[in-house]
């Protein structure tokens, strides 16, 4: 995929929608498109978070290892969503494993370069942080609802 078509794919993605053309170009320059098959491990819990991911198409499961219980799926993410923010903050580790549930298309950014880009283009960095804050808020709200007895007593 060329940088141009990557920039276009980014512009169509919910998270990056509305960014300036130059910003999309800058992002495309540090991005690559990745295709995953069903069951592919995208990253592993505890691993070094050296990439950021946007899901273009498909579904991804976030898994947590629970002792004696195996892998527990905490949440699934779908087209138009960002996958993971472990790369944003030190110590840059993934707190979940990510597994493709379907054939999945991702846009992968080099984490170090993305952090650099955000520092250099503070306007871009600010917009992205605001959007990540929104994503995190929504995920937290959804997680809270998973904690209450949302569907009633089934046991």
């Amino acid at each position: 995929m060329t940088e141009d078509s990557l920039a276009k794919a980014l512009g169509d993605h919910d998270f990056f929608r509305g960014l300036q053309a130059e910003q999309l170009d800058d992002l495309a320059a540090i991005a690559t498109k990745v295709e995953m098959a069903r069951g592919d491990l995208i990253f592993a819990e505890g691993g070094h978070a050296d990439s950021a991911y946007a899901i273009v198409d498909g579904s991804v499961a976030l898994e947590l290892k629970v002792s004696h219980r195996g892998n527990h799926i905490m949440q699934t993410l779908h087209s138009g969503e960002m996958l993971g923010w472990g790369w944003l903050f030190p110590p840059h580790r993934w707190s979940f494993s990510a597994l493709a549930l379907d054939p999945t298309t991702l846009i992968r950014f080099d984490a170090e370069q993305l952090r650099l880009l955000q520092d250099e283009d503070c306007a871009l960095g600010y917009v992205m942080m605001k959007r990540f804050a929104q994503v995190m808020t929504n995920r937290l709200a959804a997680t809270r609802l998973q904690l209450v007895d949302f569907y009633g007593n089934t046991h």
Binding site: E63, R69, G70, T76, A142, Q146
Partner: peptide, 9 residues
């Protein structure tokens, strides 16, 4: 758990 192929959330 792993094996569920649908959405979680």
């Amino acid at each position: 758990d792993r094996g569920w192929n649908g959405a979680v959330g």
